[in-house]
Protein backbone atom coordinates (compact mmCIF):
# COMPACT_ATOMS: atom_id res chain seq x y z
CA UNK A 1 0.00 0.00 0.00
CA UNK A 2 1.00 3.54 -0.65
CA UNK A 3 0.62 4.47 2.96
CA UNK A 4 3.28 2.02 4.02
CA UNK A 5 5.96 3.96 2.24
CA UNK A 6 5.03 7.32 3.68
CA UNK A 7 6.73 8.68 6.79
CA UNK A 8 4.99 7.92 10.00
CA UNK A 9 3.86 11.46 10.67
CA UNK A 10 1.61 12.11 7.73
CA UNK A 11 0.03 15.51 7.90
CA UNK A 12 -2.62 14.87 5.32
CA UNK A 13 -3.19 11.82 3.25
CA UNK A 14 -5.10 12.30 0.06
CA UNK A 15 -8.27 10.29 0.45
CA UNK A 16 -8.01 7.12 -1.60
CA UNK A 17 -11.25 7.90 -3.37
CA UNK A 18 -11.68 10.20 -6.29
CA UNK A 19 -12.91 13.54 -5.09
CA UNK A 20 -16.30 14.29 -6.40
CA UNK A 21 -17.08 17.27 -4.23
CA UNK A 22 -16.40 20.59 -5.77
CA UNK A 23 -15.26 21.87 -2.42
CA UNK A 24 -12.46 20.07 -0.65
CA UNK A 25 -13.45 17.34 1.73
CA UNK A 26 -13.31 18.29 5.30
CA UNK A 27 -11.33 16.13 7.59
CA UNK A 28 -13.98 14.63 9.74
CA UNK A 29 -16.30 13.46 7.02
CA UNK A 30 -13.70 12.73 4.41
CA UNK A 31 -14.27 9.03 4.33
CA UNK A 32 -16.86 6.91 5.99
CA UNK A 33 -14.91 3.72 5.81
CA UNK A 34 -11.77 2.85 7.65
CA UNK A 35 -8.61 2.00 5.78
CA UNK A 36 -5.72 0.59 7.68
CA UNK A 37 -2.71 2.89 7.52
CA UNK A 38 0.57 2.95 9.32
CA UNK A 39 -0.70 5.56 11.75
CA UNK A 40 -4.25 4.31 12.13
CA UNK A 41 -4.92 0.64 12.43
CA UNK A 42 -6.39 -1.64 15.06
CA UNK A 43 -3.00 -3.04 16.00
CA UNK A 44 -1.92 0.25 17.56
CA UNK A 45 -2.71 -0.11 21.24
CA UNK A 46 -4.81 2.42 23.08
CA UNK A 47 -5.84 2.52 26.69
CA UNK A 48 -7.12 5.18 29.00
CA UNK A 49 -4.60 6.58 31.42
CA UNK A 50 -5.49 5.82 34.99
CA UNK A 51 -6.74 9.36 35.46
CA UNK A 52 -8.93 9.16 32.38
CA UNK A 53 -10.09 5.73 33.44
CA UNK A 54 -11.33 7.22 36.69
CA UNK A 55 -13.23 9.87 34.77
CA UNK A 56 -14.60 7.22 32.42
CA UNK A 57 -15.89 5.18 35.34
CA UNK A 58 -17.48 8.28 36.76
CA UNK A 59 -19.22 8.96 33.43
CA UNK A 60 -20.36 5.36 33.11
CA UNK A 61 -21.78 5.45 36.61
CA UNK A 62 -24.29 8.07 35.49
CA UNK A 63 -26.21 5.46 33.51
CA UNK A 64 -28.00 2.24 34.42
CA UNK A 65 -25.54 -0.64 34.18
CA UNK A 66 -27.29 -2.29 31.23
CA UNK A 67 -27.33 1.04 29.41
CA UNK A 68 -23.62 1.63 29.72
CA UNK A 69 -23.61 2.27 26.01
CA UNK A 70 -25.12 5.68 26.69
CA UNK A 71 -21.65 6.84 27.72
CA UNK A 72 -20.25 6.36 24.26
CA UNK A 73 -20.04 10.02 23.27
CA UNK A 74 -18.33 11.34 26.41
CA UNK A 75 -15.94 8.40 26.35
CA UNK A 76 -15.06 8.92 22.73
CA UNK A 77 -14.39 12.55 23.55
CA UNK A 78 -12.18 11.52 26.41
CA UNK A 79 -10.34 9.15 24.10
CA UNK A 80 -9.97 11.80 21.46
CA UNK A 81 -8.43 14.20 23.98
CA UNK A 82 -6.01 11.58 25.14
CA UNK A 83 -5.14 10.58 21.59
CA UNK A 84 -3.85 14.00 20.46
CA UNK A 85 -7.16 15.32 19.33
CA UNK A 86 -8.28 12.54 17.00
CA UNK A 87 -10.26 9.36 17.34
CA UNK A 88 -8.34 6.49 15.87
CA UNK A 89 -9.80 3.08 15.20
CA UNK A 90 -8.03 1.87 18.33
CA UNK A 91 -9.83 4.49 20.42
CA UNK A 92 -13.17 3.37 19.02
CA UNK A 93 -12.40 -0.28 19.58
CA UNK A 94 -11.27 0.44 23.11
CA UNK A 95 -14.44 2.37 23.92
CA UNK A 96 -16.50 -0.46 22.42
CA UNK A 97 -14.74 -2.96 24.62
CA UNK A 98 -15.12 -0.81 27.69
CA UNK A 99 -18.84 -0.31 27.11
CA UNK A 100 -19.46 -3.89 25.94
CA UNK A 101 -21.03 -2.87 22.70
CA UNK A 102 -20.32 -4.11 19.19
CA UNK A 103 -17.55 -1.99 17.66
CA UNK A 104 -19.77 -1.09 14.72
CA UNK A 105 -22.18 0.70 17.05
CA UNK A 106 -19.28 2.89 18.17
CA UNK A 107 -18.15 3.49 14.60
CA UNK A 108 -21.66 4.64 13.81
CA UNK A 109 -21.49 7.26 16.52
CA UNK A 110 -17.96 8.36 15.72
CA UNK A 111 -18.72 8.80 12.03
CA UNK A 112 -21.99 10.55 12.69
CA UNK A 113 -20.59 13.40 14.74
CA UNK A 114 -18.24 15.67 12.85
CA UNK A 115 -16.37 16.75 15.96
CA UNK A 116 -14.77 13.35 16.20
CA UNK A 117 -11.73 13.66 13.97
CA UNK A 118 -10.94 10.32 12.44
CA UNK A 119 -7.69 11.52 10.89
CA UNK A 120 -4.76 13.02 12.79
CA UNK A 121 -4.81 16.77 13.28
CA UNK A 122 -2.15 19.33 14.09
CA UNK A 123 -1.29 20.42 17.60
CA UNK A 124 -3.70 23.31 17.31
CA UNK A 125 -7.05 22.77 15.75
CA UNK A 126 -8.34 25.98 14.18
CA UNK A 127 -12.04 25.90 13.41
CA UNK A 128 -13.34 28.98 11.67
CA UNK A 129 -17.05 29.54 11.69
CA UNK A 130 -18.52 30.52 8.32
CA UNK A 131 -22.20 30.26 9.09
CA UNK A 132 -24.38 33.23 8.15
CA UNK A 133 -23.83 35.68 11.04
CA UNK A 134 -20.08 35.19 10.92
CA UNK A 135 -20.10 35.23 7.14
CA UNK A 136 -21.91 38.57 7.16
CA UNK A 137 -19.27 39.93 9.52
CA UNK A 138 -16.46 38.85 7.19
CA UNK A 139 -15.69 35.28 8.15
CA UNK A 140 -14.30 34.48 4.72
CA UNK A 141 -11.74 37.23 5.16
CA UNK A 142 -10.70 35.49 8.33
CA UNK A 143 -10.50 32.19 6.47
CA UNK A 144 -8.29 33.79 3.83
CA UNK A 145 -6.15 35.44 6.47
CA UNK A 146 -5.62 32.18 8.29
CA UNK A 147 -4.90 30.22 5.15
CA UNK A 148 -2.48 32.80 3.83
CA UNK A 149 -0.85 33.08 7.21
CA UNK A 150 -0.03 29.41 7.02
CA UNK A 151 1.36 29.74 3.52
CA UNK A 152 -1.65 29.17 1.33
CA UNK A 153 -3.06 25.97 2.71
CA UNK A 154 -6.72 25.17 2.17
CA UNK A 155 -9.38 24.60 4.79
CA UNK A 156 -9.05 21.01 5.80
CA UNK A 157 -5.28 21.04 5.54
CA UNK A 158 -2.57 20.84 8.13
CA UNK A 159 0.50 23.05 8.05
CA UNK A 160 3.74 21.43 7.03
CA UNK A 161 5.18 21.62 10.53
CA UNK A 162 2.13 19.84 11.86
CA UNK A 163 1.28 22.64 14.26
CA UNK A 164 -2.03 23.80 12.88
CA UNK A 165 -5.02 22.25 11.20
CA UNK A 166 -7.55 24.62 9.72
CA UNK A 167 -11.15 23.78 8.93
CA UNK A 168 -14.33 25.63 8.28
CA UNK A 169 -17.11 24.74 10.67
CA UNK A 170 -20.75 25.56 11.10
CA UNK A 171 -22.20 27.77 13.82
CA UNK A 172 -20.41 27.57 17.15
CA UNK A 173 -23.00 29.65 18.95
CA UNK A 174 -20.97 32.81 19.37
CA UNK A 175 -22.87 34.82 16.79
CA UNK A 176 -22.95 37.98 18.91
CA UNK A 177 -19.20 38.10 18.67
CA UNK A 178 -18.88 37.26 14.99
CA UNK A 179 -16.61 36.54 13.29
CA UNK A 180 -15.05 33.92 15.45
CA UNK A 181 -12.83 30.90 15.35
CA UNK A 182 -12.21 28.20 17.84
CA UNK A 183 -8.66 27.10 18.52
CA UNK A 184 -8.69 23.84 20.40
CA UNK A 185 -11.31 24.35 23.11
CA UNK A 186 -11.29 28.14 23.22
CA UNK A 187 -13.22 30.72 21.29
CA UNK A 188 -11.49 33.73 19.79
CA UNK A 189 -14.11 36.25 18.87
CA UNK A 190 -14.55 39.64 17.27
CA UNK A 191 -11.71 38.83 14.94
CA UNK A 192 -10.07 41.08 12.43
CA UNK A 193 -7.25 40.12 10.16
CA UNK A 194 -4.71 41.62 12.57
CA UNK A 195 -6.04 40.05 15.74
CA UNK A 196 -6.37 36.72 13.98
CA UNK A 197 -2.72 36.78 13.00
CA UNK A 198 -1.77 37.82 16.53
CA UNK A 199 -3.67 34.90 18.00
CA UNK A 200 -2.13 32.45 15.58
CA UNK A 201 1.38 33.79 16.15
CA UNK A 202 0.94 33.38 19.85
CA UNK A 203 -0.12 29.79 19.36
CA UNK A 204 2.81 29.21 17.06
CA UNK A 205 5.11 30.33 19.86
CA UNK A 206 3.45 27.91 22.16
CA UNK A 207 1.65 30.57 24.18
CA UNK A 208 -2.02 30.65 24.87
CA UNK A 209 -3.59 34.01 24.16
CA UNK A 210 -6.52 35.13 26.21
CA UNK A 211 -9.69 33.63 24.79
CA UNK A 212 -12.79 35.67 24.17
CA UNK A 213 -13.33 38.87 22.20
CA UNK A 214 -10.15 40.19 20.70
CA UNK A 215 -11.58 43.66 20.13
CA UNK A 216 -11.32 44.85 23.69
CA UNK A 217 -14.92 44.07 24.38
CA UNK A 218 -15.56 42.36 27.64
CA UNK A 219 -18.16 39.90 26.45
CA UNK A 220 -20.87 40.61 23.94
CA UNK A 221 -21.80 44.08 25.14
CA UNK A 222 -22.39 46.86 22.65
CA UNK A 223 -19.08 47.82 21.18
CA UNK A 224 -20.24 51.43 20.82
CA UNK A 225 -20.73 51.69 24.56
CA UNK A 226 -23.90 51.58 26.56
CA UNK A 227 -26.93 53.31 25.08
CA UNK A 228 -29.31 52.67 27.93
CA UNK A 229 -28.88 52.41 31.69
CA UNK A 230 -25.74 54.42 31.21
CA UNK A 231 -25.91 56.16 34.55
CA UNK A 232 -24.88 54.66 37.82
CA UNK A 233 -27.62 52.61 39.37
CA UNK A 234 -28.93 54.18 42.55
CA UNK A 235 -28.31 52.41 45.78
CA UNK A 236 -30.69 51.39 48.48
CA UNK A 237 -32.39 54.24 50.28
CA UNK A 238 -31.64 56.85 47.68
CA UNK A 239 -34.64 58.95 46.62
CA UNK A 240 -36.63 57.62 49.56
CA UNK A 241 -38.54 59.68 52.05
CA UNK A 242 -36.32 60.43 55.01
CA UNK A 243 -38.05 58.04 57.29
CA UNK A 244 -36.92 55.20 55.11
CA UNK A 245 -33.35 56.37 54.68
Amino acid sequence: MLAARLPKRVPRLPPPVRRIHSSPCRRSDALFVHRDTTYNNPKIPFEFTSENMKRAQEIISHYPPQYKKAAVIPLLDLGQRQNKGWTSISVMNYVAKLLEMPPMRVYEVATFYTMFNREPIGENFVQICTTTPCMLRGAYDIVDTVCNHFGGIKPGDTTKDGKFTVIEVECQGACSNAPMMAVNDDFYEDLTAETTKKVLEAFAKGQKPKPGPQSGRHTSENSAGLTALASKPYGPGEFCTPEFQ
Binding site: F32, V33, H34, M104, T111, F112
Partner: peptide, 17 residues
Protein backbone atom coordinates in the same frame (compact mmCIF):
# COMPACT_ATOMS: atom_id res chain seq x y z
CA UNK B 1 -23.08 -4.21 9.66
CA UNK B 2 -24.15 -0.67 10.31
CA UNK B 3 -24.44 2.83 9.00
CA UNK B 4 -21.55 5.23 8.92
CA UNK B 5 -21.68 8.94 8.35
CA UNK B 6 -24.72 11.09 8.36
CA UNK B 7 -27.31 12.72 6.21
CA UNK B 8 -26.82 12.53 2.52
CA UNK B 9 -23.45 10.87 2.95
CA UNK B 10 -24.66 8.04 5.10
CA UNK B 11 -23.38 4.67 3.99
CA UNK B 12 -24.18 1.10 4.78
CA UNK B 13 -21.16 -0.98 5.58
CA UNK B 14 -18.85 -2.46 8.13
CA UNK B 15 -16.58 0.61 8.46
CA UNK B 16 -13.61 -1.71 8.64
CA UNK B 17 -12.97 -4.19 5.86
Amino acid sequence: LGTTGRGNDMQIGMYVE
